[in-house]
């Protein structure tokens, strides 16, 4: 029965394996020490963004956080404009700021969803638009300089880098979180909110907790993004929204709630990274950007349909 709980991982795992093999053939450098270090560096923001929206998706109500990208962008530009430019560059302060800022936003979003009772997708759509604008107001164009220690993450030549430690820390946090009763509450709430409510789960706290976790990971994602680009960029975060959702869906986490975990999201994000590696290894010339779009779209549709086929019998049983 363990296989049942992990069945949603077959699709992303298969994708990662196939793409991994293709990457190994087409771009073998990917799997060298430096190649992996670079891969880790580049993929980390997306991986963490995908991880961040996972607890919110598990918490149900079709909860997909569209604001995640601009949120990461917000933390990125504020680190550069508010902290770095004012000489606040101590790692502890920057880390604390990134995580607290992201958590604060998520709390605000959760409060809207819980108390105003509007659907998460609309709340986060409004959030997307608001933050997208706010980011451009804070920093109208890419620029600024990240704290030096953070900018140095961008070298990406050492596997044992802060980015790796952040990812490991994220996994550790998730692992510990998964062992708490709260995680169980969130799962229950996502699978059937009424059951959770009537069996005494504090669904308000559970939803806040899911968003809080999202905030922690979003903060870490923003740090990794800032490390990667070494500067502030008001628009780079925005693209992460759709990518993170894609990774989430590829990872088999259902937007219907109650199911899934970060393993799937991580695999989904890795699969997406590998797609770009494989595609970049071909010389499509002028159409390479379009090939990416095409395949990216087909992959999404395919993953959804495969998930549909593999879970269909269970749905019928219900």
């Amino acid at each position: 029965m363990l296989s049942n709980r992990l069945s949603h991982l077959w699709v992303p795992l298969g994708l990662v394996l196939i793409l991994g093999i293709m990457a190994a053939v087409r771009a073998p450098q990917t799997f060298t020490y430096v190649g992996l270090a670079g891969a880790l560096l580049v993929a980390a923001p997306l991986i963490l963004a995908a991880v961040a929206i996972t607890p919110i998706a598990i918490a149900g109500r079709g909860g997909v956080d569209l604001s995640i990208g601009p949120l990461i962008g917000f933390v990125n530009v504020t680190i550069v404009v508010w902290l770095s430019e004012n000489g606040i560059t101590h790692p502890i302060l920057v880390f604390a700021y990134a995580i607290l800022a992201a958590c604060a936003w998520q709390m605000l979003l959760a409060a809207f969803i819980i108390f105003v009772r509007i659907s998460p997708i609309i709340a986060s759509l409004a959030g997307f638009m608001i933050l997208q604008g706010v980011n451009l107001v804070i920093l109208s164009r890419p620029g600024g300089v990240a704290p030096e220690w953070l900018g140095n993450w961008g070298w990406g030549t050492e596997l044992l880098s802060p980015v790796l430690y952040i990812l490991l820390a994220a996994f550790a946090i998730w692992f510990l979180f998964q062992r708490t009763a709260m995680f169980q509450h969130i799962r229950l709430m996502g699978a059937d909110e009424r059951t959770a409510y009537t069996s005494g789960v504090d669904i308000i706290k559970a939803r806040f907790a899911a968003h809080l976790m999202a905030g922690v990971f979003a903060g870490l994602a923003a740090l990794c993004l800032t490390g990667l680009i070494g500067s502030g960029d008001p628009t780079q975060g925005n693209t992460l929204t759709l990518q993170a959702i894609t990774a989430l869906v590829l990872g088999g986490t259902s937007l219907a709630g109650g199911k899934g975990g970060i393993t799937g999201s991580v695999l989904g994000a890795v699969a997406m990274y590998l797609v770009f590696v494989v595609l970049s290894s071909f010389n499509f010339g002028a159409i390479s950007g379009f090939m990416t779009q095409l395949l990216y779209g087909l992959m999404l549709v395919f993953a959804l349909l495969v998930a549909l086929v593999t879970t269909a019998p269970r749905t019928r049983a219900a």
């Binding site: 009763a181 169980q184 229950l188 699978a191 059937d192 069996s199 789960v201 504090d202």
Partner: peptide, 28 residues
């Protein structure tokens, strides 16, 4: 309370449903 409608989370397992809501907020 056992409600008129059978309150179970279909996607979750038997034990998860049986022990729904019995733990503390964070601690099992």
């Amino acid at each position: 309370t056992i409600y008129q409608e059978i309150m179970v989370a279909e996607e979750l397992t038997v034990w998860e449903n049986t022990f729904a809501g019995t733990d503390g907020l964070w601690r099992r």
